[in-house]
Computed example of a mutant assay.
Amino acid sequence: MKTYLLKREQNIPISLDEAWDFFSSPLNLAKITPNDMKFVVTSDYTADTKMYAGMIITYKISPLLGIKMDWMTEITHVDDKKYFVDEQRFGPYALWHHQHHFKAIEDGVHMTDLLHYAIPYGPIGRFANAVFVKGKVEGIFDYRTKAIEGLFGVYK
């Protein structure tokens, strides 16, 4: 199985506490996901719910051609105000392992995303990644960068 790595880094002009509070709430993910994905958290969580190791989060998404899919991730690791990891348990990928790292910097937070993913179906999956999946994943993270800037401002 061929795996792919996407790494993104962003400085955000908020405190580490503010960043952790926002990103560790499952319901906030919809605020930084492109609207065309029709992303909805279906787990019964409230705005006060914070991530913890073992947490299962379910979603409805429409990643391609408006086709609705179920997706389930588990928060497998959490180190308060340092990092958390979500892994797909059910969904469109053969592998989805997403690390979210946070580090306080002068006047803000440095956030690093490390995403390892794989597409099922061998050579067909590799072709699909080359033709559209890689671009779609990159587009989601491009959108996320802009959405975070819209919510918190641009780091200077």
Results as ranks from 00 to 15, higher is better:
2 K>M: 13
3 T>W: 03
3 T>Y: 05
6 L>V: 15
7 K>A: 10
7 K>W: 00
8 R>W: 03
8 R>K: 14
9 E>D: 12
10 Q>S: 05
10 Q>K: 05
10 Q>G: 09
11 N>P: 05
12 I>K: 01
14 I>Q: 02
14 I>D: 07
14 I>T: 10
14 I>R: 06
15 S>G: 14
17 D>C: 04
19 A>H: 01
22 F>K: 03
23 F>R: 01
25 S>K: 11
25 S>T: 15
26 P>H: 02
27 L>C: 06
27 L>R: 06
28 N>G: 09
29 L>A: 09
30 A>G: 08
30 A>K: 11
30 A>H: 02
31 K>F: 06
31 K>H: 11
31 K>G: 07
32 I>A: 00
35 N>L: 14
39 F>H: 10
40 V>M: 11
41 V>P: 06
44 D>L: 06
45 Y>K: 08
45 Y>E: 08
46 T>P: 08
47 A>P: 07
47 A>S: 14
48 D>E: 15
50 K>P: 12
51 M>H: 05
52 Y>T: 11
53 A>M: 09
54 G>H: 03
56 I>F: 01
57 I>P: 00
58 T>G: 13
60 K>G: 11
62 S>Y: 11
63 P>A: 04
64 L>M: 13
65 L>M: 13
65 L>Y: 08
67 I>T: 09
69 M>P: 00
70 D>M: 04
72 M>A: 15
74 E>T: 09
74 E>V: 12
76 T>W: 00
77 H>I: 15
77 H>V: 15
79 D>S: 13
79 D>Q: 13
80 D>R: 06
82 K>G: 06
82 K>C: 10
88 Q>M: 15
89 R>G: 07
91 G>L: 06
92 P>I: 13
95 L>N: 07
99 Q>H: 10
101 H>A: 08
101 H>W: 02
102 F>S: 03
108 G>W: 00
109 V>T: 03
109 V>G: 01
112 T>Q: 10
112 T>D: 05
114 L>Q: 07
114 L>H: 09
117 Y>N: 02
117 Y>F: 11
118 A>R: 00
118 A>T: 07
119 I>K: 01
119 I>V: 14
120 P>Y: 05
121 Y>P: 01
121 Y>E: 04
122 G>N: 09
122 G>A: 08
123 P>N: 01
125 G>Q: 05
126 R>M: 12
127 F>D: 00
127 F>V: 14
128 A>N: 05
128 A>V: 11
128 A>M: 12
128 A>T: 09
132 F>P: 07
132 F>V: 13
132 F>N: 03
133 V>H: 05
136 K>Q: 14
137 V>P: 04
139 G>W: 08
139 G>I: 12
139 G>E: 08
141 F>H: 08
146 K>E: 15
146 K>F: 07
147 A>E: 09
149 E>V: 10
149 E>H: 14
149 E>T: 12
150 G>T: 09
150 G>L: 03
150 G>S: 10
151 L>E: 10
152 F>G: 12
154 V>I: 14
